[in-house]
Amino acid sequence: MSETLIKVENVNKTYQRGGETLTVLDGLNLDVPNQDFLALMGPSGSGKSTLLNLMGGLDTPTSGGIGINGVQLDQMNAKQLSSWRSSNVGFIFQFYNLLPVLTADKNVELPLLLTNLSKSQRKDHVLTAMKAVGIDDRSDHKPNELSGGQQQRVAIARALVSDPDILVCDEPTGDLDRNTATEILELLKILNEDHGKTIIMVTHDPVAAESAKRVLHLDKGKLTN
């Protein structure tokens, strides 16, 4: 492992709920080195998704700093965050979130529509990403013609297609059976080890967490080992 890629410094995240202040993250510090595979565990409602969203540039902290590769996400406005996300992070969700009317390859292509790539270049990138996750033989299938594991592979291809350094996964195996989950975790491992992706994965499943290089627990707004 090498230099720090993500630096979370003294981050607070609070929500106002009916006059009360709910502190979700409380002066949290975290260093994620480049090419790390980090699993975040913790009870429901402990703020795992909240932290993940902050590191993925989907949300901004109430206070504190989030630096990634030298840029401070907490200083950016929504528009800047948008364009930062499009080239630096890939997101993988529990429920895949594919567009049901589009074929697999069209779903994977969506992030590339924001780039200046030509149609044929986009096609090449889509194919590369789909090959990397082993779903290239299903490129013209619609989501409802695919199994859960296959849909998650398509979603991973979509996250990979613009070749981001960071993959952010919120319970990526939460909706899959054990065997399929193992396959997906294997795939994430390969992406981490062979393709050099830094992966942060939220999971409830201790078996899934074993695939990671490190496991951190979040509880009452703080991280513990």
């Binding site: 364009s83 930062w84 996300r85 979130n97 567009l99």
Partner: peptide, 14 residues
């Protein structure tokens, strides 16, 4: 709604 969320996550501007 969830599809829109995906677009925004990916980096589509508002």
């Amino acid at each position: 709604t969830s599809e829109l969320a995906v677009f925004k996550t990916i980096g589509y501007l508002d």
